[in-house]
């Protein structure tokens, strides 16, 4: 048996100490500051800041972009994970690598890519004008940028789970005459459910907090293309500290909700296995 010696005790407690100190300094202190600053001038001012017209619009836009990103990345994530684990085809390795690109590319670059692809300089810009489609400095651009940065989250959760399992059960079901959709619904989905939900949570969390890519493509049109993080920045730049922190506290609360959802899903998922 391993026996704790004095020196290993020192190592143990100093490591724990460093971790706790770090969490307090880097996470708890800022969080407390945000909440404290938000309520500094009383609840009425807070409520006013939060229920401000531009703020509500920013909340709705953020939720809209998040919802769309989750939906679209669900479709993409399921297809990508399924095709990468169940089929053999040329270019599979390249596809696997490319999926990770949004994580490695800086969000600012991602925003610029969309600006250049759909903006005035772009060769397809006249086409978009003809069809009366607005992407840059409009909601579609924000949604696109959000989808881009949250692209790999769902597929990345699903691929290892699907890989670890093989096709036996699906084959057995197919042999008995079950159709593709029935097989997915009854055999495959119950297996990937928890990993999938976990991916959705991660994707939602990232989508809500996205700043860089969205900042480039949104144009900061207050009440139109301002998401919550962008709204916070604008308020802050205007020295409106209380509203800035009040709006930040909404994001903090959303983050805490997601953190709880994450823990519940992780716990239930582990219990199922």
């Amino acid at each position: 048996m391993y026996k704790e010696t004095t020196s290993s005790k020192i190592v143990k407690w100093s490591l724990i100490g460093i971790s706790i100190a770090f969490v307090v300094l880097m996470l708890l202190l800022p969080l407390i500051t945000v909440i404290a600053e938000a309520f500094k001038q009383g609840f009425d001012i807070y409520a006013k800041a939060v229920s401000d017209n531009y703020t509500t619009k920013a909340i709705w836009l953020t939720l809209e972009a998040t919802l769309l990103a989750v939906i679209i990345n669900t479709v993409f994530g399921l297809s990508a994970a399924w095709s990468l684990t169940k089929f053999q085809f040329k270019g599979k390795k390249i596809l696997t690598t490319l999926i990770d690109l949004p994580v490695t590319v800086s969000p600012i670059i991602a925003g610029l890519i969309f600006l250049l692809t759909f903006g005035r300089q772009s060769p397809i810009y006249p086409l978009l004008q003809d069809w009366d489609i607005k992407i840059v400095f409009a909601v579609p651009g924000i949604v696109l940028a959000t989808i881009f940065v949250t692209f790999p989250f769902i597929s990345r959760e699903l691929i290892p789970v699907l890989e670890a399992r093989g096709n036996d059960e699906e084959e057995a079901a197919a042999l008995m005459g079950a159709k593709g959709w029935t097989i997915f619904r009854k055999i495959t989905f119950p297996h990937i459910k928890w990993a999938f939900l976990y991916g959705v949570v991660l994707c939602a969390a990232r989508a809500m907090g996205e700043f860089g890519a969205v900042s480039v493509i949104s144009g900061h049109l207050r009440g139109k293309t301002n998401t919550l993080p962008l709204h916070v920045e604008i308020l802050f730049n205007e020295f409106q500290y209380v509203p800035a922190f009040a709006v930040s506290s909404i994001l903090v609360m959303l983050a805490i909700v997601i953190l709880i959802a994450r823990s519940v899903i992780e716990y239930r998922g582990r219990k199922k296995i």
Binding site: D168, E169, E171, A172, A173, L175, K186, I187, P190, H191
Partner: peptide
């Protein structure tokens, strides 16, 4: 045809 797989391939969530 009825097929019994080597690993049985029972549906584990049923």
């Amino acid at each position: 045809i009825g097929f019994v797989f080597q690993s049985y391939a029972l549906f584990r969530y049923m």
